[in-house]
Design a protein around this nucleic acid. Structure first.
Length: 657
RNA sequence: GCCCGAGUAGCUCAGUCGGUAGAGCGAUUCACUCGUAAUGAAUAGGUCCGCGGUUCAAUUCCGCGCUCGGGCUCCA
């Protein structure tokens, strides 16, 4: 038989017997590669290892160490999950089961709208391991759409996917999970006589290639993510190439749980959510409030230096304001209901600060010479979030925005947005964030106000600003606010999680609704453009993100307490008090822990509070006016002169360490 | 709002196959006064989330509600 020649990623060529598969190629290159191989990329397309190679093909063997390889392992594990569920739960039907970050899920409908229990999960897990032990091959096949509809006639969700694709229905919601190719050919994989699943593939060669997985939880999920459609039963799992990787991942989850801001808020006595207040409402304890004060003071200073004017506004306003702004038309579902007083006059708690700032603008006639006007308020708003959405400080019903509204001319918009982005990123960097990702959100499909050309103009301005700032961004089609498009900035925290914080929103609409004007150089009245901008987003969420980012160990400039002073014994308490008074007089936040318990115990307790310094003072220190410095994460140093320690702490604060 | 799970001392949790409950930490008191991550002893502390139902008897079983957690949707 004639040989074929294939090209490898390093540019080298390799001769193989005709009819060789990608698996044969891997074997020919080396036994270790053959063992690690998961799929192949042939001429740029992901294929099963069983794919026959043609002469001249460019082939890369993908192993389980690559992202693509891991993705395949997770996807294949999801299929085994589906097989196990269909075997254990007669009459159940499967929907979609893609790989996701770190794992996979699969959605099912059980007969009679039954649900999975925790015990079901362990049964399913056991069944999956049997399927893997049986080492069933993933065998690919192809059908026409018509044939597929017959084969999958008992699987209504599969049929819906086939029909949607067959009709070439425009699908921009990305939920087809790669089960059907665009050309109307339906591919499927058969693992055994009793199980086949529709899928584009590729898959690992056989179920024996899998095994380092864990089923994690059951959740409800709407079919196609649409809350008007049936709720399916979703099983989430994680899967990895090796047992070690799986264990490392599970360990990472435990570590992340330790930094949960709700847990730390309780341990460090920062914030609580008393039931008496209702869901999504928090109270700030003294230590949490001190951290918040530092954040707010810094924010205020930066804004004043950045050309903003501080303003204040009330928490409620008459319904007419919200009618004018459009909130009652487009945002009412998220607003707390009205208080009705004074013979039927309705007052609504504010869900946003913008209408108030507009009224401040409108309090007098404005000239183009005054623009841009930048108003800034730490404004507390109330939003009636869905009960299931409320989450600690990250999603809360009463929260404070570091809210700015910038009023400028159309000509100023591009420069203003560009400098705004710089300002936002610079302030975020001051808090220790370095990794940013932006998102540009365009006009919502259903609820929005304004003319198309306005939206286009606004969206273009934002796009240009992003390009100018050199920031990576994605497009969220239809994700804009009802009054305009926006840029959202996400930050990555210390353990790689992404949080949506800042938002910059362009608004040509509200100025029109409120009839805002300025007198231009031409002596004529013009309409200003409005930019809504929150930098922290919400002070509460930002605090929560900082808390998790630093795992409770705030840098000194934010820390609620800089140092705890511990006298070795009661005899040293008088000197300890002097140390406290001295440091406080220099503006430091210091606590005295009297000698009512053993020193080791008090040190431990102080350390658990994660404050930057523990100071121990004993006989030697009384004599020499020194302190023993035990820094967070550092080595103990005895006999440091009190003034020297104060200088060191002052340096930390100045450098925002 | 929807699906699943949970709610026992201030905290973390055990327990009762239906007969009103227990540990550690914390608190209080006493003793110890100690040089860098847990001294010892004693004491107090609970409508077992709430309301109904079943039962001689409910923290336990059932129903409803509230709150929290994990998701979906939504979002700063």
């Amino acid at each position: 038989m004639a040989d074929i020649s294939v090209k490898l990623p390093d540019g080298s060529k390799r001769e193989l017997p005709a009819g060789s598969t990608a698996a044969d190629l891997a074997k020919a290159i080396g036994s270790r590669l053959a063992k690690a191989a998961v799929i192949a990329v042939v001429d740029g397309l992901e294929r099963d290892l069983t794919t026959s190679l043609h002469d001249g093909a460019e082939v890369a063997i993908i192993t389980d160490t690559s992202d693509t390889g891991l993705h395949t392992i997770r996807h294949s594990t999801a299929h085994v999950l589906a097989q196990a569920v269909l075997e254990l739960f007669p009459g159940s039907t499967n929907a979609i089961g893609p790989a996701v970050e770190n794992g996979f899920y699969y959605d099912f409908a059980l007969p009679g709208n039954a649900t999975f229990s925790a015990e079901d999960l362990s049964r399913i897990d056991a069944q999956m391991r049997e399927i893997m032990a049986a080492d069933q091959p993933f065998v690919r096949g192809e059908l026409s759409a018509t044939e597929a509809l017959d084969v999958f006639r008992d699987f209504p969700y599969k049929c819906e996917i086939i029909e949607r694709t067959a009709k070439k229905v425009a699908d921009d919601d990305g939920l087809d999970a790669g089960e059907v190719s665009a050309d109307g050919i339906v591919s499927f994989y058969r693992n055994s006589d009793s199980f086949l699943d529709m899928c584009l593939g590729p898959h690992v060669p056989s179920t024996g290639r899998l095994g380092h997985f864990a089923l994690q939880r059951v959740a409800g999920a709407y079919w196609r993510g649409d809350h008007t459609r049936p709720m399916l039963q979703r099983i989430y799992g994680t899967a990895w190439a090796t047992k070690k990787d799986l264990e490392a991942y599970l360990h990472r989850l435990e570590e992340a749980a330790k930094r949960d801001h709700r847990k730390l808020a309780a341990e460090l006595d920062l914030v609580s959510w008393p039931d008496e207040l209702g869901p999504g409402l928090a109270v700030w304890h003294p230590k949490g409030a001190m951290v918040r004060k530092q954040m707010e003071d810094y924010s205020r200073d930066r804004h004043v230096n950045g050309g903003y004017s501080i303003v204040y506004s009330p928490h409620i306003a008459r319904s007419v304001l919200w009618e004018t702004s459009g909130h009652l038309g487009f945002y009412k579902d998220s607003m707390y209901p009205a208080m009705e007083l004074d013979e039927g006059v309705k007052y609504y708690p504010k869900p946003m600060n913008c209408p108030f700032h507009i009224l401040i603008y409108k309090s007098q006639q404005r000239s183009y010479r005054e623009l841009p006007i930048r108003l800034y308020e730490l404004g507390t708003v109330y939003r009636y979030e869905l009960s299931g959405a409320v989450h600690g400080l990250m999603r809360i019903r009463g929260f404070t925005q570091d809210d700015s509204h910038i009023f400028c001319t159309r000509e100023m918009v591009a420069d203003e947005i560009a400098s705004l982005l710089d300002f936002v990123l610079d302030v975020l960097r001051s808090f220790g964030f370095t990794d940013f990702q932006a998102k540009l959100s365009t006009r919502p499909r259903d609820k929005s106000v304004g003319e198309d050309d306005m939206w286009e103009l606004a969206t273009d301005a934002l796009r240009e600003a992003l390009a100018g700032a050199g920031l990576d961004y994605t497009i969220d089609s239809g994700g804009g606010a009802f009054y305009g498009p926006k840029i959202d900035v996400d930050v990555k925290d210390a353990i790689g999680r992404s949080w949506q914080l800042s938002t910059i929103q362009l608004d040509f609409n509200m100025p029109a609704r409120f009839g805002m004007e300025y007198i231009g150089a031409d002596g004529q009245a013009h309409q200003p453009v409005m930019i809504h901008r929150a930098l922290f987003g919400s002070v509460e969420r930002f605090f929560g993100v900082l808390l998790e980012h630093f795992a409770g160990a705030f840098p000194a400039w934010l820390a609620p307490v800089h140092a705890s002073v511990l006298p070795v014994a009661s005899a040293h308490e008088a000197y300890a008090s002097e140390v406290v008074a001295d440091l406080r007089s220099r503006g430091f936040r210091v606590e005295l822990h009297e000698a009512d318990e053993q020193l080791g115990k008090r040190i431990r307790n102080a350390k658990l509070q994660k404050h930057p310094y523990v100071l121990v003072v004993g006989e030697d220190d009384v004599e020499h006016r020194t302190v023993g410095v035990n820094p967070r994460g550092g080595e103990v140093e005895r006999g440091v002169a009190l003034g020297v320690f104060g200088d060191r702490l002052a340096a930390d604060l100045a450098a925002r360490r």
